[in-house]
Design a protein around this nucleic acid. Sequence first.
DNA 1: CACCCGTGGAC
DNA 2: TGTCCAAGGGT
Length: 292
Amino acid sequence: MDTAGTNIAPAVNGWFAAHARDLPWRRAGFSAWGTLVSEFMLQQTPVVRVVPRLAEWLDRWPTPASLAAVPPGEAVRAWDRLGYPRRALNLHACAVQITQRHGGIVPRDVDELLALPGVGPYTARAVAVFAYGDRHPVVDTNVRRVIARAVDGVGEAGPTATTRDLAAMDALLPLDDADARVFNAGAMELGAVVCTARSPRCGECPVAAKCAWRAAGYPAYDGTRAPRQKPFEGSDRHVRGLIMAELRASDVPVTIAQIDSLWTDDVQRSRSLAGLVTDGLAVVSDGGYALP
DNA sequence: CACCCGTGGAC
DNA sequence: TGTCCAAGGGT
């Protein structure tokens, strides 16, 4: 009999073949550019909010060159309320680099992908695997949780440790490229819809019989946790969000008076606005502020 | 490694 | 009702 948590790929892949959600980026013929765009949008934004925005985006900018041809502010505006607008800026910068340095083709090599702005360990491998079919471990928050539970026998994954996380997934990865690709997608899907952070649906889990956490009786997690998220209300992120919403909504430069009306605390408002300028999300224009 | 970066929905 | 969570990445 197998050790708990080992060789879970066949069960995961079998389950995925029967239960995978019908998502746009899983359509046959979905482009590498579409994959890159979708992965950017999925960085900390739920699938249900990404799907409609992704369709609009790819309809408007079906290639890197088409996005590279417009000002970055257009990308930020189209990003709308997906959150973390610097992702839109980075995606536009990706489009420029891909157009100028890669002949308009999204790179396939992981190191070349990692060199693109806003592309980290997850996104680089997700593109190489899902768009090009190469064999790499793809580790996101879902995969980390599945491995923590099924393999390590603990309820939560704890803080990210990229090198260790990649090695852990690599150890589970089937040797065949196509099987590895399915397993990457399947482990992610399993974490997203069955092995969820709260109230996991173990009765529907294809790995339940091999799950080390289940076998141990679901012990409460006592390890180190990821740092708590600070309250959003009244935070700089809140103020930045208010300012960005104002910039997105306006076709002309937003006046200082308009920005001043958004938040009463002068120090925090000024700090937030300066941060947006530093980040390239806002530029001075005709004495006011506008998208870049 | 700790902290920062938006936004909205679920419990 | 406040906390947690979401296909992360940059500094």
